[in-house]
Amino acid sequence: MIRLERAALPVDTAAQLKVYTREVEQTSEVDRKDTAARLWSHSTVRRRVRDGLLTVLADMAPGHQRCMYCGDSQGTDIDHFEPKTLAPVRTFEWLNHLLACAYCNSNQKRSRFPRAEDGSPLLLDPTLEDPLAHLRLVLPLCTYKALTPQGEACIDVFGLNSRGVLVDGRRTAYGTAKQSVELWRIATDRGQYDKAAEVVRIAWNRPLADVLVAMFHQSGHPAAGLLFDGEEETLGLLRDQELRAAFLSRA
């Protein structure tokens, strides 16, 4: 997971969401869950709001429309961060919508929404909080270590460490990310600035951009020498201020 910025919706989509939210609110509390589910699944309602939501969510997502939770698969589903079965009034609330892959949405998260003792959500909304404060990617193992209860909940609910395809994918992403920073340095030293810019663009558009984010973040850690033990050349590149400026301006 990486930090994302929430964008503004088209005016007509935002207006339609408000109409349906009012319709749910005006329903008796006991019937709200059924009303929200009926409206969300209604073909006319979905046609009026789905395209607008998906377009903006796709633009917000990492890489080429990657899932905002795992960062690997294509985001195909509009996920309700707080499930509509638990918070029906938020079914059509823009701030409650994230882009998820079908696996994270239907196989992993479903209606799971763990809360802390004070009632606050334990899952992370990457448009509200920076996952780096809650999760640390252990390089080069490419498994996550929880730094907070929120991080622990995300690892559990989304299977961030138990899904072998994600861990293997991150290892591959780590290798390609190291190659990317090396290629950028070579191209820049040769004055091939267009090629260097293309290296940056491709690096961020690959799946599992969380690996690249973690590499730059951890290269500035006081214990970076230990975190990148045996990979001093990579660490040196990640600390190169010119390279950091080129890559992080696209983050």
Rank of each mutant, 00 (worst) to 15 (best):
A197R: 13
Q16F: 11
S219L: 00
E232Q: 14
I202R: 13
A15S: 15
P222N: 02
L238T: 03
T13Y: 05
P83N: 09
T188W: 13
A177N: 11
R244I: 01
F92R: 05
L238G: 09
H221E: 12
V213L: 00
S162N: 11
L141H: 11
G225C: 06
A187F: 13
H42S: 13
V19M: 05
E25P: 01
R185V: 12
M68Y: 00
L99C: 04
R201Y: 10
C154H: 08
F113I: 04
H97G: 04
D12K: 12
E29P: 00
P140Y: 11
Q192E: 15
F216V: 05
H97K: 15
Q65I: 01
G75Y: 06
F92D: 03
A102M: 02
D59N: 07
G175A: 12
L123Y: 07
P126W: 08
G159Q: 04
A133I: 01
H42K: 11
N107W: 05
K178I: 03
R244K: 13
R185K: 15
V181E: 03
L132E: 14
S120G: 04
R206S: 11
G119P: 05
G164E: 15
E29M: 05
F158D: 03
G63I: 07
Y69S: 13
A37I: 08
G220L: 11
K18E: 15
T127A: 09
A61D: 04
A37C: 01
D189M: 09
P83H: 05
Y103N: 11
Y144K: 08
F81M: 03
T148L: 05
R48G: 09
R201D: 15
E231V: 05
E152S: 14
P114A: 04
T143R: 14
R171G: 06
P207L: 08
A14V: 04
E233D: 15
L237R: 15
T91G: 02
D125R: 09
V24K: 03
R171Y: 00
G220Q: 14
G75I: 10
V200S: 02
L53G: 06
A61P: 02
C104E: 08
F158G: 00
A116T: 05
T234Q: 06
Y103W: 10
D72F: 12
I155A: 07
T172D: 14
L95G: 10
C142G: 02
F158C: 03
T91R: 01
L98E: 08
L99G: 04
Q26M: 11
Q192L: 14
P140K: 11
L98C: 07
V24M: 12
T176S: 13
L183N: 12
L95R: 13
E25C: 08
